[in-house]
Write a protein that binds this DNA or RNA. Structure first.
Length: 272
DNA sequence: CTGTTAACCTGAGTGC
DNA sequence: TGCACTCAGGTTAACA
């Protein structure tokens, strides 16, 4: 489900409800997520206060008093709900964090590609976070960085920018949309893209992600913020999911190719 | 090292 | 109504 803008929307949605609250009770109903949820999760984070929230790529971090953190990844279908305690448990409600002040933070994930993992204060880094590429909004991400890193790479540029070791946060939707805005075909070899093109692409990646955050993300099937409100960025999609439809800019028919086992739509006229 | 593929899982949609 | 099949916003392990 969620790429960077959706995760950021969730983070902003839950923050006011969790900040300063203590974790009173942790309930794990199903440990079988992307990685097993530790059965002793309550013993490890119970009683601690949530002092902050953060995001690294598509990982959501709950920062706890004493320096511990809880890593939450939404995978493809994960959601976080802010509820009142005692809400009926539905199918796929895998983890509950009952907080002080009458707040229930509930993790729900039908496909179970998501993750809920403690990150102890004693560990300076975490295997899932280490090795990640720069944040697209950070100073160490720009077109020159993409250009240098991509030399001699034959893989399609779309795969290149979706690689979390290159830059975090661009998934299938926003990779396709930023390539459209930059006028670059997703199939082009990453190593053949020029420096000026990468400068434009880096700009468009930031632009697309920023607009999507402002719109509250993209709601295609089941994404919603913690308050249940949908995102509105889908109204600004130029190519994603529009195979066979006319390009909104030139009218040419949008095409689809499969790259890295992911559907990739582009305009054959606007993107070269 | 780079690149490609299969795999993890459930549910929604489509076509017969 | 049911069945078989395809596809879906992510990530990584295994392999060439």
């Amino acid at each position: 489900m969620p790429e960077l803008p959706e995760v950021e929307t969730v983070r902003r949605g839950i923050e006011p409800h969790v900040l300063g609250r203590r974790i009173v009770q942790v309930t794990v109903r199903d440990t079988r997520l992307r990685w097993p949820v530790p059965a002793d999760l309550h013993a490890r984070i119970g009683g601690k206060e949530i002092v902050g929230t953060a995001r690294r790529g598509k990982y959501l971090l709950l920062q706890l008093a004493g320096g511990d953190r809880l890593i939450v990844h939404l995978g493809m279908t994960g959601r976080l709900f802010v509820l009142k305690p005692g809400q009926p448990v539905k199918k796929h409600d895998h983890v509950d964090l009952e907080l002080s002040g009458g707040v229930l933070l509930r993790f729900h994930d039908p496909r179970r590609f998501g993750a809920v993992l403690p990150w102890p204060a004693s560990e300076p880094t975490h295997a899932l976070i280490a090795g990640m590429g720069p944040e697209p909004f950070g100073e160490d991400f720009d077109g020159d960085y993409l250009f240098e890193l991509s030399r001699r790479r034959s893989a399609p540029v779309k795969n290149f920018i979706m690689d979390g070791r290159v830059v975090v946060g661009a998934g299938n939707i926003y990779a396709a949309e930023s390539l459209f805005r930059a006028g670059i075909r997703p199939t082009r070899a990453a190593g053949k893209i020029t420096r000026p093109q990468y400068r434009l692409l880096a700009e468009k990646i930031r632009e697309v992600l920023e607009e999507a955050v402002q719109q509250g993300g993209t709601t295609l099937r089941d994404f919603a913020g913690a308050d249940g409100a949908p995102g509105y960025f889908q109204q600004k999609l130029f190519v994603y999911g529009r195979e066979g439809e006319p390009c909104l800019v030139c009218g040419a028919t949008i095409r689809k190719v499969v790259l890295g086992a992911r559907a990739s739509c582009y305009c054959p006229h606007c993107q070269k």
